[in-house]
Design a protein around this nucleic acid. Structure first.
Lengths: 133, 133
DNA sequence: ACTTGACTTCGAGCCCACTCGAAGAGAAAG
DNA sequence: CTTTCTCTTCGAGTGGGCTCGAAGTCAAGT
């Protein structure tokens, strides 16, 4: 039995239920599919999308990539690699490691800027004390 | 007063020099001024902008606020408050503290997402080993 | 049968923060 | 004087990531 056949038997969610679960709008879910970030989602007899738990897991991963600043074009690239199968594992790993490094840099940058802001807050606090007391 | 006289009193930088120093484009510096994020910059006898060290310090602060995700409209508000004088100190402090909290949240979010990515990287590493070894 | 409401596709529109281009002025170099 | 360079203002254009609206289909509820 294939993964797809297993997935096909699972309880599924409508686009609005899936949107609720993953914290994206229904419009965005359809747009992600159209943009190739998500492989075509299964449909019911009326042609409406049915999201499996596997789909939701994929969407969760995509939202983490988006929140950490990965551009849509890179997510599309990653989705294409994932669809191509196991021989793209090494490239997917490289893609993730490169992204990880960018996120680490971004965190370091935020922390450095935060220090400067904290210093400024301290100054403001002292100025206010002088002004009021 | 001539440009030479100004220069004699305080060294100043042209818009392109200032852009270089603060890491923004000349277009962006003019746009920041137009948008009220920066008070009108001094001019030389030919009407060209001359940036003082004070201007550069302000721009440095603005770039930190921007990099940490403060929207331009909030930076404008902050600039307006700063121009109004000392009686806005308390509000400026509140603005900074609120921003600081958002940055802290953002860092925490990035770190949480990073953990999930690290886990994924670990999985990919193991799958690659299994595939190759 | 009719209404309701969620779904479908498609393309246009929006917001943000720039980014660029056109047209022209002023100073410096040859 | 002419060319070259950088500057000026103004308004239009761009790119990313959605977001919205129109027009229509379908199935369930009353």
């Amino acid at each position: 039995m294939t993964m797809t056949q297993i997935a096909a038997r699972q309880p599924t969610l409508s686009v609005s239920e899936a949107a609720e679960r993953v914290g994206l709008s229904t419009h965005t879910l359809r747009w992600y599919e159209q943009e190739g970030l998500v492989s075509p989602v299964g449909r019911d007899s009326a042609g409406r999308r049915r999201y499996t738990e596997e789909d939701l897991g994929w969407l969760d991963l995509l939202t983490k990539l988006r929140r950490t600043g990965m551009p849509v074009r890179d997510m599309r690239r990653y989705a294409e690699l994932a669809r191509e199968g196991d021989h793209t594992l090494a490239e997917r790993l490289r893609l993730f490691q490169a992204h990880r490094d960018r996120v680490l840099d971004r965190i370091a940058e935020l922390q450095a800027d935060l220090e400067a802001l904290d210093y400024k807050i301290d100054i403001y606090g002292k100025m206010l004390e002088a002004q009021q007391g």
